[in-house]
């Protein structure tokens, strides 16, 4: 091979992500400039943060000695509220999501229905649970009911959107074949669409159950019931041992929900 040896040529690695020279420089220097500005305008009270470390140590201490018993009543009530809120809102959410999801699929719905359903989905997705919860607490008063309405509403945005996207991606030949037999709209949905999207709908519902539980632990902070409210109270009282007990419970419940829903999803498919 030495006889075909090329003359010394230099080689430099070509840029990895952005190959265009101008854009690469512009984006990198823009990012750097932003970072400098962001850090420069950061207002941090380091003195206060430093003092907080001692409190952090206390918190860590509290976290390592979780106290489930002294406020057991409140913890239990919060947990039961969270779980029941999750169950009810997921079920109601699914029941409402299915028709809206069908309506929001362009390939099986007429344009006006499609637009209305998509609008509902967009509204529900635009704001996160906590903001919706603020509004519903203002309307329904404090407590689990506002949380239930919040989570049901948020479930619609999630499930109906993914269901609709799923239906839009089905194999059109199967639905066409069913339509070709002279089937009506309901029959097309039942025979041509449902079998194709059902497994994913079940999977998504279980996944949403999971998310709803996590969220139920948060919306209590703005007064919508559940374990989040209990946690907030414990933090206000500087009762870190109870707070840590609640956090541990949340982690365990989330893991349980995640593993069991993952298990059921695998079992269904």
């Amino acid at each position: 091979m030495s006889e075909v040896q090329a003359v010394s040529r230099r080689w430099r690695r070509p840029p990895v992500l952005i190959r265009n020279d101008f854009w690469r420089r512009a984006i990198y220097s823009g990012a750097l400039l932003y970072l400098l500005l962001a850090i420069g305008t950061l207002e941090v009270d380091w003195q206060r943060a430093y003092e907080g470390l001692e409190r952090g140590a206390r918190f860590l201490q509290g976290f390592l000695t979780p106290d489930f018993t002294s406020r057991f009543d409140q913890i239990q009530r919060g947990m039961v509220e969270s779980v029941t809120m999750t169950v009810c809102s997921t079920m109601v959410g699914i029941l409402i999501s299915v028709p809206i999801g069908l309506g929001a699929a362009r390939n099986i719905s007429p344009l006006p229905v499609y637009l209305v359903c998509r609008a509902i989905i967009s509204v529900s997705r635009a704001f996160q649970e906590i903001i919706i919860a603020i509004l519903f607490v203002a309307m329904f008063g404090f407590g689990a009911f506002a949380g239930f309405v919040t989570l049901s509403f948020a479930t619609i945005g999630f499930l109906a959107k993914l269901l609709a996207d799923d239906i839009e991606e089905i194999d059109p030949r199967q639905a066409e074949a069913v339509r070709g037999t002279g089937a009506g709209w309901w029959q097309v949905v039942n025979y041509g669409v449902q079998p194709q999207v059902m497994p994913r709908l079940i999977g998504l519902s279980l996944y949403r159950f999971d998310i709803n539980f996590r969220e139920s632990a948060v919306i209590g902070i703005v007064g919508a019931g559940g374990i989040g409210a209990t946690l907030n109270t414990a933090m206000d009282r500087y009762d870190y041992s109870t707070a840590s007990a609640i956090l541990i419970l949340i982690i365990i419940f989330v893991m349980l929900a995640e593993y069991s829903s993952g298990y059921i999803r695998k079992w269904i498919q």
């Binding site: 950061l42 207002e43 941090v44 009270d45 206060r48 943060a49 003092e51 907080g52 470390l53 409190r55 952090g56 918190f59 906590i130 996590r214 969220e215 632990a217 948060v218 902070i221 989040g228 946690l231 907030n232 933090m235 500087y238 707070a243 956090l247 949340i250 982690i251 989330v254 893991m255």
Partner: peptide, 25 residues
């Protein structure tokens, strides 16, 4: 990973505000 994922950032913030004091940090 599980611990970080199970706890919503709002709850993390709740804890950190108690430790570090209110603010952007």
């Amino acid at each position: 990973i599980v611990a970080s994922r199970s706890i919503n950032s709002l709850i993390w913030a709740l804890l950190l505000v108690a430790i570090l004091g209110p603010g952007i940090l």
